[in-house]
Design a protein around this nucleic acid. Structure first.
Lengths: 187, 187
DNA sequence: CATTTTATCTTGGCTGGCCAACTAATGCGC
DNA sequence: GCGCATTAGTTGGCCAGCCAAGATAAAATG
């Protein structure tokens, strides 16, 4: 500090929301709050925010190539690698080599993790309902639609985005619980 | 892996978008893409995504108490501390003790950083326009409104959110460039 | 005045997430 | 067969961001 340089109030206090763009700014804040809320819900499930997306991809699918998983969640490969290392360490995930391609890695959810499926789904539902409280069905749909357009816009440049991966695939009833064949778990 | 344990496909492949909630999921993806896009724009300005918000608070204000800054951006104090340490190291920010309260720290933008104001503002505008391409004015407004509602919803529980901090503060014309009076710096 | 409470940072530790650079295995072309 | 590009994953480095715990200084309280 030491005063010798004079302060640097460049221009004075704009309303803040008026510079740049209200939507971008609101988006950042909402996303942060949303993530924090998700974190609180996931905490008791021994999951960190972000891991849910990976697990959701694994539940409901058998062993999956890591590359496919990466494409699915749309994150950086290194991010997924580290996340999987942690998920493996916490026992939510099992990894192994792919016999048909020795550089690939197969990933699958552990049986233990299956017990979380329902809870994570519930948490998501709760969070969704929470976030959208007071919004009418039409508004929710509109919000989803607008977010979709924004995502499409941002996608064009970002290069690595999913977009239209499961847009099709209509209503599976699908048991929310771990309904799959339990498969013999050797003692 | 080794197949001996039986796979753990809990339930089968839901449409994914159908579980939890489409908005929450879309929100996460959009936020991520948005942040990446912001990062690309900020990169050349020697800023990392997130720092913009802090700098925006500093530009347009003289020396600010760190605690006030923290309240303003709504982040964790430790986050802001570290961010400021880096911003100080990169010369964007200057910090010094508050003579009137020796545990407080005063923060201000450096003159050097002032040259970024316009560029950051431009980047935000560009990003905003980019994200919202193809959306009509009505849609943009609607999106902002809906995001606002969601933020309000998430705010109630999050405890540390801003919301209505500068809702007041009417139109400062305010030069977008470093216009401020050089003013005496304490110390 | 002494004690306790509160406010203001700071540090350490951990995750998510990115990029850049690297290894290893597969494929393709010659 | 040999060599080169592509693909798959990993590692290291860095930053944002959180929480929990600690150090100081100010304020409240006895």
């Amino acid at each position: 500090m030491s005063g010798a340089q004079g302060d640097a109030a460049c221009g004075d206090a704009l309303p803040f929301a008026a510079r740049g763009g209200p939507v971008s700014h609101a988006l950042s804040r909402v996303a942060r709050l949303h993530r924090i809320a998700a974190g609180k819900l996931l905490r008791r499930l021994d999951l960190y925010p972000g891991q849910e997306f990976v697990m959701m991809r694994l539940w409901g699918a058998g062993p999956v190539r890591q590359s496919e998983l990466i494409r699915g969640v749309g994150l950086d490969p290194s991010t997924v690698t580290k996340m999987l290392q942690r998920l493996e360490q916490t026992g939510h995930v099992r990894r192994g080599p792919d016999p048909s391609d020795r550089r690939a890695v197969l990933v699958e959810a552990t049986e233990r993790s299956c017990s979380l499926l329902a809870e994570v789904t519930a948490a998501w539902t709760e969070l969704e309902e929470w976030s959208l409280a007071g919004l009418e069905p039409g508004e929710r749909q509109e919000l989803a639609r607008l977010l979709g357009k924004v995502e499409a816009n941002l996608c064009v440049e970002s290069a690595d985005c999913l977009l239209d991966r499961e847009a099709a695939a209509p209503g599976h009833p699908a048991a929310p619980e771990c309904a799959a064949e339990p498969g013999p778990v050797p003692g």
